[in-house]
């Protein structure tokens, strides 16, 4: 088992290394000279060349990459051009926002998805099943910016029970914090619940068909035990993987919601970095977000292994 974890860890590190290379070089070869973009249409070619050099962009690419990588090990990702602040600090400040809405959204999505997913699997083709499947379709079909707008208009403008936009840190006020993240989380949850519900339903259906279910029934176990201990456990692998993927996606993919609700999260930071061609900030952000994705995937894999001993033994058998 330990060897499995170590193995996954090793491959994660390789992935991160490859990502660092891709991140760096892709951002370097995209058209547009950052110095020209910063200085605008009024600057002299000499001024542009000077800033280009001052930003260290005139060195050979491999040198730039190596020095960047070296700093990265020291958790120093350089200084943002737009904010004049350390990239590490900027990212650290955005994490609570994105993470709280992502996690809260996933809590809501998981709750609804498991509840209705299991119910509709157990009572296939019932009203509940149709209802669940409608949720699925709606969640997948409604664009999040639209639902965000609608929620803002109703809860914020019309009934005035929730703030229209902005973020209140948890240490400032818990209720304020909850109020500021509720709508954005809801929007994210609506976007994710459909996929998750579908997976829960199909895995549950699949697991209900297994022989050991009949066995359990014949054995006379009570239904609760049957569904929770046997059916659900067998059906957990796929949803868990999906939850991991969704969480990973949300870590870097909340930009639309953050823009609509004016939340100072990672997604907004990425957008600002792109808009202002803040290459240093962008490199740091892409690297950070990919690391999060890799780490979440790793954790999920380990979880799944615990749930599904077959993976473990398969690996040991290798």
């Amino acid at each position: 088992m330990l060897s499995y974890i170590l193995d996954r860890l090793k491959s994660s590190i390789v992935v991160l290394f490859v990502v660092s290379i891709i991140t760096f070089f892709v951002l370097m070869i995209i058209p547009g000279n950052p110095a020209q973009l910063i200085l605008g249409t009024d600057a002299t070619p000499e001024a542009i060349a000077e800033l280009h050099a001052a930003m260290g962009l005139d060195r050979p690419l491999y040198q730039q990459y190596l020095s960047w990588l070296l700093e990265l090990f020291k958790l120093d990702m350089g200084k943002s051009y737009v904010y004049g602040e350390s990239v590490t600090v900027l990212i650290a400040r955005s994490i609570p926002v994105t993470f709280s809405i992502s996690i809260f959204a996933m809590v809501m999505a998981v709750f609804v998805a498991f509840l209705f997913g299991m119910l509709s699997a157990i009572k296939k083709n019932s009203i509940t099943d149709y209802f669940s499947r409608s949720i699925m379709q709606l969640g997948a079909a409604i664009p999040s910016f639209w639902i965000g707008m609608v929620l803002i208009v109703y809860f914020g403008v019309k009934y005035k029970i929730l703030p229209v936009s902005g973020f209140i840190p948890i240490e400032q006020s818990f209720t304020g914090f909850m109020r500021s993240i509720f709508l954005p989380s809801l929007v994210l949850a609506i976007g994710e619940v459909g996929t998750l519900l579908r997976i829960v339903r199909s895995s549950m259906l699949n697991s209900l068909k297994q022989d050991y279910m009949d066995m359990a029934k014949v054995k006379g176990l009570n239904a609760g035990k049957i569904y929770i201990k046997y059916a659900l456990r067998g059906a957990l692998t796929a949803p868990l993987t999906i939850i991991g993927m969704q969480l990973a996606k949300l870590a870097g993919g909340t930009v639309v919601v953050e823009t609509i609700f004016a939340l100072p999260g990672l997604g907004r930071l990425v957008l600002t970095a792109v808009e202002h061609r803040d290459i240093v900030l962008l490199q740091g952000l892409v690297m950070f977000i990919t690391s999060i994705v890799v780490i979440i995937t790793l954790i999920v894999d380990i979880f799944v292994m615990f749930l599904n001993p077959r993976i473990k033994s398969f690996h040991q058998g290798e």
């Binding site: 208009v153 914020g156 403008v157 703030p163 229209v164 936009s165």
Partner: peptide, 18 residues
Amino acid sequence: MVLIPDATSMMAGFQVGD
């Protein structure tokens, strides 16, 4: 000065008086 990147949210904030 509050940064609100989206024009519709901005308008909503204005209409409620924020």
